[in-house]
Nucleic acid binder design. Sequence first.
DNA 1: AAATGGGTTGACGTTAACGTCAACCCTCTG
DNA 2: CAGAGGGTTGACGTTAACGTCAACCCATTT
Lengths: 128, 128
Amino acid sequence: MTMTVNELAADLGVTARAIRFYEAKGLLSPARDGHNGRVFTRRDRARLLLVLRGKALGFSLDEIREYLDLYDADPTQRAQVQVLLDKVRGRIAELESQRAALEQTLAELRDIEGQATAALAETEDTPA
Amino acid sequence: MTMTVNELAADLGVTARAIRFYEAKGLLSPARDGHNGRVFTRRDRARLLLVLRGKALGFSLDEIREYLDLYDADPTQRAQVQVLLDKVRGRIAELESQRAALEQTLAELRDIEGQATAALAETEDTPA
DNA sequence: AAATGGGTTGACGTTAACGTCAACCCTCTG
DNA sequence: CAGAGGGTTGACGTTAACGTCAACCCATTT
């Protein structure tokens, strides 16, 4: 049911050092087994997956922590919910502009790909 | 028709230091005016824009340089074109998986937004 | 001539995100 | 009981991407 650091690390393709680092940064908070090792549940694992996705999207660990706080936020406090909402909307705006840049880059790369393919086809029978 | 470092920097919202740094890294190669300053054309500006977009997408400067080389590549050399094509396709694959992660994150954030909005509406008449 | 306003090249400082030891602690197992 | 096998906490090293001087050059303006 639970995992150790190295198991989780192997599972998600990261190093144990990185996981401990994330804990030190407050992104994870696995339980302990006496003086022994950390105990990771599937919730910890899910959280780490969120961290990794955030990283893949180019966010810093600090940003990811804020982002995780959005998940944990208590939706019963009116003022806090308002802050949460603002943050979420800001993040959505950022991601959407990032997506736009990404689409544009993809389009350009596809264009280059097409040109390269064409160039190959053209010289197909007249090799260097 | 041309610009100085600081003009370009102000124009695109980066520091002159960063621009010089990019040049040192081989991402830009503006002309010189005698012993005086760098001279940036609109082609240099366009190139810098590509750099900035790459950064926004989370690529390292080294990766961006490779990426820029794709633009500059000579499409008349068969072997080089093949390499180019492979690189481009690899990059496209990366970007598409990145886009998938982005879409998923966006969906989750929108979900949180909806819940927060609902929570606000519910306590609208019964404030804290 | 002195000062002011760009611009230049080092050279060193800084932050983020770990990598890489080193030293140490349990807990088995032969 | 001597290792071997996990796990732990420092502490220091490293890379990327600049920031931040410092010292200097050249062309004006005053």
